[in-house]
Amino acid sequence: MRILAVDDDPVVLDLLKVILKQEGHDEVVVAGSGPAALDILVRDDRGFDVLVLDIAMPGMDGVVLCREIRKLRYYADTPIIMLTAHSDSRSIESAFGAGANDYITKPFDIKGIGIRLQIAERMMAENRITLDINALQSKLDGPEGQHCFALEDAVCLRGVKQHTDVFSLGNYLSTMERYRVDETSVFAGQIQSFDALYRSCTEQELATVLSEVWNSISAAADNTRLLGSYVGSGTFILIAACSIQDEWLGLEPTIKTILAASPSLKKASLGCPVAVVLGRPFRPNASKTKRVKPTFDRARQLLQKRLEMDAASG
Rank of each mutant, 00 (worst) to 15 (best):
R225Y: 11
Q245M: 07
N215K: 14
R158N: 15
C242W: 01
S243W: 04
F194H: 10
I237A: 07
A196C: 00
C201P: 09
S243C: 02
Y179G: 02
A221I: 00
R180F: 14
S216G: 04
Q137K: 15
K139M: 14
S233I: 02
N223Y: 11
A207N: 08
L173S: 00
G228A: 08
W248S: 08
S138I: 07
I239F: 02
Q245C: 07
S193T: 06
E183I: 03
V160N: 09
V186F: 02
L226I: 14
S243V: 03
T208G: 09
T208C: 14
R225W: 05
L210W: 15
L238D: 01
S174Q: 11
L197I: 02
L169I: 08
A154V: 11
A240R: 00
V160D: 04
N134E: 15
T202V: 10
A150F: 02
M176K: 05
Q192N: 12
A154Y: 10
L197D: 06
F236A: 05
D141M: 08
L136Y: 06
D165V: 03
W214E: 10
K161E: 14
S200D: 14
L140Y: 04
L249F: 08
E152W: 01
S211D: 13
F149S: 06
A196M: 13
A207H: 11
L210H: 04
G142W: 06
L197N: 04
V155I: 14
E183V: 11
F187V: 04
Q192H: 09
D141C: 07
G234H: 11
W248C: 01
T224S: 15
G170Q: 08
S216L: 06
A240K: 00
Y179P: 00
F236S: 08
D246P: 00
H147N: 09
M176C: 14
A154C: 09
Q162R: 12
L151I: 05
I237E: 10
S193P: 01
I191K: 03
I217L: 13
Q245F: 09
A207K: 05
Q162A: 02
E203W: 00
S243E: 03
H147L: 07
L210Q: 13
N215V: 01
T235Q: 11
Q190H: 12
A188E: 07
L227N: 03
H147Y: 09
V231T: 15
H147A: 06
G232A: 13
D141Y: 06
A196N: 07
V186M: 09
F149N: 03
C156T: 13
E152N: 12
Q204D: 01
D195F: 11
F236L: 12
N134L: 14
Y230H: 15
D165T: 02
V186N: 07
Q162S: 13
Q204P: 03
V160G: 01
L151P: 00
D222K: 13
D153H: 11
S229A: 15
V231I: 15
Y198S: 04
Q190P: 00
A221Y: 02
S168M: 08
A240M: 06
A135C: 02
A220Q: 04
Q192I: 06
L197Y: 14
Y172Q: 07
Q137C: 13
Q190T: 02
L249E: 12
T224M: 06
L249N: 09
C156K: 10
D222N: 14
R199Y: 00
W248V: 00
T202S: 14
Q204C: 10
G228F: 07
A154F: 03
L197Q: 03
G234T: 07
T164S: 09
N223L: 12
S216H: 07
